[in-house]
């Protein structure tokens, strides 16, 4: 199955972006890496032949990134530093 290599590569990319989201110093960078993670998740779902799930993950990725950014904005504003 030739798709297997591509699939493996995509999951590997997910692991990389996920790790860098966890290890990024800056929270904003972390959130951006997290949305990249979400994007690769969409690609992986598409490769796995699940358009419905991919579509849902795409919109959920947008919404959750928005939530994160809005929350981050509030947190920065409220922080003592």
């Amino acid at each position: 199955m030739p798709g297997a290599f591509f699939l493996g590569f995509l999951v590997f990319l997910m692991a990389v972006t996920g790790l860098s989201a966890l290890f990024a110093r800056d929270l904003l960078a972390s959130i951006i890496m997290f949305s990249a993670f979400s994007y690769f998740a969409v690609l992986t779902y598409l490769t796995m032949g699940a358009p419905d799930v991919a579509f849902t993950e795409a919109v959920v990725g947008v919404v959750s990134t928005t939530f994160f950014i809005v929350a981050l904005r509030r947190m920065k504003r409220g922080s003592s530093k």
Binding site: D52, A54, F55, T56, V59, T66
Partner: peptide, 17 residues
């Protein structure tokens, strides 16, 4: 087509957001 209630609702919500 792929899609349904959940996706539609989320897209509409994005428009409002």
């Amino acid at each position: 087509n792929p899609g349904g209630g959940f996706q539609s609702g989320a897209v509409l919500a994005i428009a409002i957001i």
